[in-house]
């Protein structure tokens, strides 16, 4: 996916002279072909992310469409104020390519694990956030990224992730993608989540539970129409993401459900990372396992909530929101982090 993203920057630059690439000393051989072919549109700056983003803003003010590439934590944490004021407040066409979204850099520890990047970027007005699922979706997204008004944060996954999207489907920024229909539940997800969600849906089908999968590659702005249509039709909603339970896709969907005014109650649960810094190394896969961001976990959660929904529907208590009995049915039987609803396991 990373390779595809960068290749596409080169490809776009060949056809559009506004396109400029900027990096921050990352990494060996990055876009070497572009550097030799288009040297006036390839700039490798030092390890200076604040300057990188500020300069990108200056270039964009002059009409360039700048793709600024470095590690996600440094883009979102180190240069946050430049992103906020120079890029978002000015609403400029700067594309921030965040390498290592989520737990990709698990072996490198918390300095490099972007587990709250979506939350940070979501809070910024004018920011668009895109987290494609695979290289093919990245290709389709990159094609439409050039002419998008305003800034975009692009969350890169590890790479070589299995392709779960339709390679021929054009990407529309702000549009959700239905990967599976389902009458009993909907699993909403983003980034590398579809693989987990689809596997869970497959397992649920074997248990007689018909769960759909709605992929939201654009985390901001959310496709509210798609969310409303899909959630209105089912009693159970589970979000799964490689991100903190605070402020990511699950939070966004929770906010939506809370205010959507659905006439029937929704059994909703977020699956994501706990409100804690990772304390172990290992791999992205092992950490996802540690934190319970797995197909098995999604399966169990959906099944549990579907069971609750059926019980409550049978008791005819669906109209009595706020009922203490109802509330107790919503609490997860899984261990969760202290003071934190949701189904993240402790780190």
């Amino acid at each position: 996916m990373r390779k595809m993203c960068l290749q596409m920057v080169h490809e776009l630059a060949r056809h559009d002279e506004r396109v400029v690439f900027m990096g921050s000393d990352l990494g060996h051989g990055t876009l070497a072909e572009m550097q030799s072919e288009l040297p006036d549109r390839f700039y490798m700056e030092g390890i200076s992310e604040m300057n990188l983003v500020g300069m990108a803003a200056g270039l964009a003010m002059e009409g360039a469409v700048v793709y600024a590439n470095t590690i996600a934590t440094f883009l979102t944490r180190r240069s946050f104020e430049q992103v906020a004021m120079d890029v978002c407040h000015a609403n400029l066409p700067v594309r921030l390519i965040g390498n290592g979204g989520g737990l990709v850099y698990a072996p490198l520890g918390p300095t490099h694990e972007a587990t709250e990047d979506l939350a940070i970027m979501r809070a910024l007005p004018n920011m668009t956030i895109v987290a494609p699922a695979d290289a093919e979706e990245m290709r389709q997204f990159m094609r439409v990224s050039v002419d998008h008004d305003g800034p975009i944060y692009i969350r890169l996954a590890k790479g070589y992730d299995p392709v779960v999207t339709d390679p021929e489907a054009p990407f529309e920024i702000g549009r959700a993608v239905s990967l599976r229909e389902g009458a009993d539940a909907v699993i909403v997800t983003t980034g590398i989540g579809p693989r987990i969600a689809l596997e869970a849906a497959k397992r649920l089908a074997q248990r007689g539970i018909d769960a759909g999968v709605l992929h939201l590659p654009t985390v901001k702005p959310l496709d509210l129409d798609a969310l409303e249509a899909r959630i209105a039709a089912v009693p159970v909603v589970v979000s799964v993401e490689e991100h903190s339970l605070i402020g990511g896709l699950g939070s966004a969907v929770a906010e939506f459900i809370a205010e959507a005014g659905f006439t029937t109650p929704k059994h909703f649960r977020r699956i994501g990372l706990p409100d804690a810094y990772p304390t172990r190394y290992g791999s992205q896969a092992s950490q996802l396992e540690d934190f319970g961001v797995t197909a098995e976990r999604v399966e169990a959660t959906v099944a549990e909530l579907c069971g609750s929904a059926r019980t409550v529907a049978g008791l005819g208590t669906m109209q009595r929101k706020g009922d203490g009995k109802w509330q107790s049915r919503m609490i997860s039987s899984h261990p969760s982090t202290q003071g934190q609803r949701g189904t993240a396991l402790p780190g």
Binding site: G54, M55, G58, M61, E62, G63, A64, M85
Partner: peptide, 19 residues
């Protein structure tokens, strides 16, 4: 350029000059 938070204008200016 909108300024007020210190330390931003130099990089923005450098980007403009580079362009």
């Amino acid at each position: 350029a909108s300024t007020g938070s210190l330390g931003h204008g130099a990089s923005i200016g450098a980007g403009m000059a580079l362009h």
